[in-house]
Design a protein around this nucleic acid. Structure first.
Lengths: 202, 202
DNA sequence: ACCTGAACACCGTTCAAGT
DNA sequence: ACCTGAACACCGTTCAAGT
């Protein structure tokens, strides 16, 4: 019985991934406060100091969770935005819709991602992961400027308002609904108004 | 000495207030995770179970912190909005400015207020405190509709977008600046664009 | 009513030691 | 290199008891 049984006594096939997954579930179910290294270790049948090889501290685990979240969000966003031949308004709508779907699916994770990013002691990898995740969105704004759909100005500054609005709407209606109106509908309306506001004066 | 010396209790004149104050400082300095009942009790020279009379659980203390925050924000907002004779745009600008100043002054508290409000187990008093805090803003929107400055529609729904944008901007630029632009400037620009978007088509 | 002190079951982190 | 188990200093919460 020394073959690879799923519950091998010595060590997990991939402890890092397993811890990350369990931590993600704990986070989503009860916030960052209910992520416990000891409890996760117990679930994985591993000593409570084993995760320390992969995540030297609890904060490191929480940061890794946020980085992983940004990586997933980045993939989702860049896929939704697609190639630059398509219509600007459609690409923008798809991007916001993708962001909203991510938010509805992982509300606590998204909140944690933002909180972790703005923590004073956030590691550089986390900031880089965030920048990378939103880079496709920034490129979209820049291309919108080239095609005359967006006013001139710093793309990062211009993108800030729609990003912030979406983020704020998500926070405000974190259950996915606000007064019976779906978050997707709310964001679509808000985005439309903001985009109109970003158009060059004609 | 059986007389009711109301403020000469065993130790503290007003333990509730003292705990709330200390908890607020702990929150603002290091997030909700660094609020410790035992540590606060130590600082106040009181046994670690004494606060339990006022806050039966740590969650109750955190909720009370959020409620207190909403009460202060509500006062600030209703003062800024002033009486209904003044110009609509000015009142709105003052309201957003007041909100931004509160955010800059108490960034972690504001984040905690929103998080606490959207916690599944949030007590009704917390939701009521939030509603009350924003009631003057809702009234402003409603009056804007009367005077033709805002499109028809559910005021709460219309107010959601500017509220969410401000909240999102605060989260995104929680240090008070974003790329060298002050949060106040960011919010003022965003608010202007959104208000224009809310105007009835003429 | 308000507060105390001991007890309980948890936690993150450190460290010497095992394989 | 990766993992273990004991130890340490902290938590929040409960409870019988003091004033």
């Amino acid at each position: 019985m020394k073959a690879k049984t799923p519950n091998r006594a010595y060590h997990h096939g991939n402890l890092r991934e397993a811890v990350l997954l369990a931590a993600g579930q704990a986070l989503e179910s009860g916030g960052a406060g209910s992520v416990s290294l000891r409890e996760i270790s117990r679930e994985l049948n591993v000593s409570h100091t084993a995760p320390r090889r992969h995540f030297p501290t609890k904060q490191a685990l929480l940061d890794a969770l946020a980085i992983h979240g940004y990586a997933r969000l980045g993939v989702t966003l860049s896929r939704a935005i697609g190639d630059r031949d398509a219509d600007f308004d459609i690409r923008l709508a798809k991007a916001t819709r993708a962001l909203v779907r991510f938010a509805v699916k992982h509300p606590v994770l998204l909140g944690h991602m933002f909180a972790a990013k703005h923590h004073p002691a956030a590691p550089p990898e986390l900031l880089e992961a965030s920048d990378l995740a939103f880079s496709s969105g920034l490129k979209l704004i820049a291309e919108g400027q080239e095609t005359g759909n967006v006013v001139a100005g710093d793309p990062e500054l211009l993108a800030l308002v729609p990003f912030a609005t979406v983020q704020g709407l998500i926070v405000v209606s974190s259950q996915g609904y606000f007064k019976g109106v779906s978050l997707e509908q709310l964001v679509e309306d808000a985005t439309y108004r903001i985009i109109v506001g970003l158009r060059p004066r004609s």
